[in-house]
Design a protein around this nucleic acid. Structure first.
Length: 233
DNA sequence: AATAGAGCCAACCGCCACTAA
DNA sequence: GTTAGTGGCGGTTGGCTCTAT
């Protein structure tokens, strides 16, 4: 189909239904072929985008929560504008949504914060890595809806604190953590964790099963996994 | 009530990486 | 090794809604 024949602009309800049906039948791949087969006068790219950002099951369409906001802020510090990477850490959210949220809410917020803190030079508390890790686990635990510590600086101060990459890609401890995670997680099927990104704590929903304290985390085995890492540091 | 400006978000664009021929 | 096709990503834009005047 020539480009000029392609429809553009907002999607109609009928188009959504057709796309949903055809993706259900053919799967989320071969978007060009799928677009042609559907009879929709849309490009494959357009179909993919509509599906990924709006029609896909399990998408959240509500407001970004404070917890999600904290994660976005932290991961943005860590990765910059790697929106798709960040989106993978927030099940049900799309890269586009996060990007828009960042631009319309967080960027200004952050700039205002920085402007405010510039005058009184920030004290870097230089938390030892051991303590950072403890904080990190506690932080994730708060995501279960228990009283949490999001909103404090603990999570955003130290991008490396939960970064498994910092330990080296073939760390035996990373493997152990991965094994443990896969044994206890009910990771959503649409979530893909690649090795390169494999970082701990709030990456994994299963941590929310751990209760709200380090003590409880201990009881669930996290302590054993992290301990050797702390010892190494 | 009218209107201008700001904010927000869905969708598009262009580039890059990957893969198959 | 080269090329064309495709998918994925980040940046940008257009248009709708909200708010202030």
């Amino acid at each position: 189909m020539a480009n000029r024949d392609l429809r553009r602009g907002p999607w109609l309800e009928g188009e959504d239904e057709i796309l949903t049906t055809i993706v259900g039948a053919l799967g989320e791949k071969h978007w060009d072929a799928l677009a042609k087969q559907s009879g929709l006068r849309r490009s494959g790219k357009s179909c993919r985008l509509r599906w990924m950002n709006y029609l896909r099951p399990n998408l959240k369409h509500g407001e970004i929560t404070q917890e999600e906001e904290a994660i976005i802020l932290d991961l943005h510090k860590h990765w910059g504008s790697k929106w798709s990477k960040i989106a993978k850490r927030l099940p049900g959210r799309t890269d586009n949504e996060i990007k828009n949220y960042w631009r319309s809410h967080l960027k200004k917020k952050l700039e205002a914060q920085q402007a405010g803190t510039k005058s009184n030079t920030k004290q870097d508390t230089a938390i030892p890595i051991r303590d950072r890790s403890i904080q990190c686990i506690s932080t994730k635990s708060s995501m279960s809806g228990n009283e949490g510590i999001f909103g404090t600086s603990s999570i955003s101060e130290t991008p490396e604190m939960c970064d498994m990459n910092a330990l080296g890609n073939d760390s035996p401890y990373e493997s152990r953590i991965s094994e443990w995670i896969s044994s206890c997680c009910s990771w959503p099927s649409d979530q893909v964790i690649d090795d390169e990104d494999c970082m701990g704590t709030y990456t994994y929903p299963c941590f929310s099963q751990l209760g709200s304290s380090c003590e409880e985390s201990k009881n669930h085995g996290v302590w054993d996994l992290w301990n050797p890492i702390w010892e190494m540091s």
